[in-house]
């Protein structure tokens, strides 16, 4: 599987989080939202002009600023991806 940055993934794609390169504080924050390594999410949309990415995780929508999204490494998955 090819590792990509979350920003490079196309819209509508299901992804699995591989790694967060942002220090413990950021990891903690993302972890609370269910965005921890091994978990799945779907990239729903991306705002223009360097705006945030909208992810769907466990039925919740989470907006993540571009700066943070750049630190999230993911793998592309088929839509049947299961978090648990």
């Amino acid at each position: 599987m090819i590792e990509k940055q979350l920003l490079e993934v196309s819209i509508g794609q299901t992804i699995r989080v591989v790694r967060v390169n942002g220090g413990e504080k950021l990891e903690n924050k993302l972890r609370q939202l269910g965005l921890l390594p091994g978990n799945c999410a779907r990239k729903v949309r991306q705002a223009p002009f360097g705006g945030p990415v909208l992810l769907e995780i466990d039925g919740r929508s989470i907006a993540i600023g571009r700066g943070i999204a750049a630190k999230i490494q993911v793998e592309e998955e088929n839509s049947e991806c299961d978090s648990h």
Binding site: G22, L26, K29, L30, L33, P52, L54, R60, S61, I62, A63, I64, G65, R66, G67, I68, K71
Partner: peptide
């Protein structure tokens, strides 16, 4: 802060 993280309800 590194950037926006917010739940869109």
């Amino acid at each position: 802060a590194p950037g926006l993280i917010i739940e869109v309800p």
